[in-house]
């Protein structure tokens, strides 16, 4: 039996969503700290410009496209869940998971190529940041996809529909982080 506490909503924001907002706030400072450090180093190392030119912008752009599209499917899943359309919500959730898989696959291909060219984690501090920031983000992608897969199991039975929105919000945040990682790591040179 669920505690009564879980059903109260003194703020007017449902508890689950409120918690996701706080989670996102804590993630902002996590990525913020890492990226602040990166920007400081980047601005004071002219040599990094040439190194950043070695990253593959087209793969990065493709991945941005994939994530933006998966954000669309995530929000369509939310819309379907609001309309109590369990099949639609389930379908769009799995489209989003598919997007995550494509994203991670492209990333794997990209990293393999780079490592084969000799650009590894320890090649230089630029590459350390590159793998560190993109890797931390990729972990979030994998986590988000896992959560959505778990949530989709209940959704198919029409239970816990509000969770579709919650994992969607998290997914949009993962997308937002990538929107900033893309220019920081790929475009600026």
């Amino acid at each position: 039996m669920r505690p009564i506490a879980t059903t109260r909503s003194a703020t007017g924001i449902p508890t689950g969503r409120l918690a996701v907002w706080w989670l996102i706030a804590s993630e902002i400072v996590l990525f913020g700290g890492l990226l602040s450090a990166y920007i400081m180093y980047r601005l004071s190392h002219d040599a990094w410009t040439a190194q950043a030119a070695q990253t593959n912008m087209w793969l990065g752009a493709t991945n941005t496209f994939v994530l933006l599209t998966s954000s669309l499917t995530a929000v369509l899943a939310h819309k379907a869940a609001d309309n109590n359309d369990t099949d639609g919500a389930f379908k769009y959730l799995w489209f989003t998971i598919l997007g995550a898989l494509i994203f991670v696959s492209i990333k794997a291909f990209e990293w393999t190529t780079e490592i084969q060219h000799g650009y590894t984690l320890t090649s230089s501090t630029f590459w350390s940041f590159y793998y560190c920031a993109a890797g931390l983000h990729a972990l979030h992608v994998i986590a988000g996809a896992t959560i959505m897969a778990i949530v989709s199991m209940d959704v198919r039975k029409g239970k816990e529909m509000q969770r579709v929105e919650l994992c969607g919000l998290y997914w949009h945040f993962v997308d937002l982080v990538w929107i900033f990682l893309f220019p920081l790591l790929y475009i600026a040179k």
């Binding site: 059903t7 909503s9 007017g12 449902p14 508890t15 689950g16 969503r17 912008m57 752009a61 941005t64 496209f65 933006l68 599209t69 954000s71 669309l72 929000v75 369509l76 819309k79 609001d82 529909m161 509000q162 929105e165 893309f182 220019p183 475009i187």
Partner: peptide, 28 residues
Amino acid sequence: MSEAAHVHHPNYVKVWGILIVLLVLSVL
């Protein structure tokens, strides 16, 4: 719990289209 959470859903595909156009601009 989700009754209060319902929001008006805008045309998401249109937003997505704008995002993609912006992406192309940011690459070009």
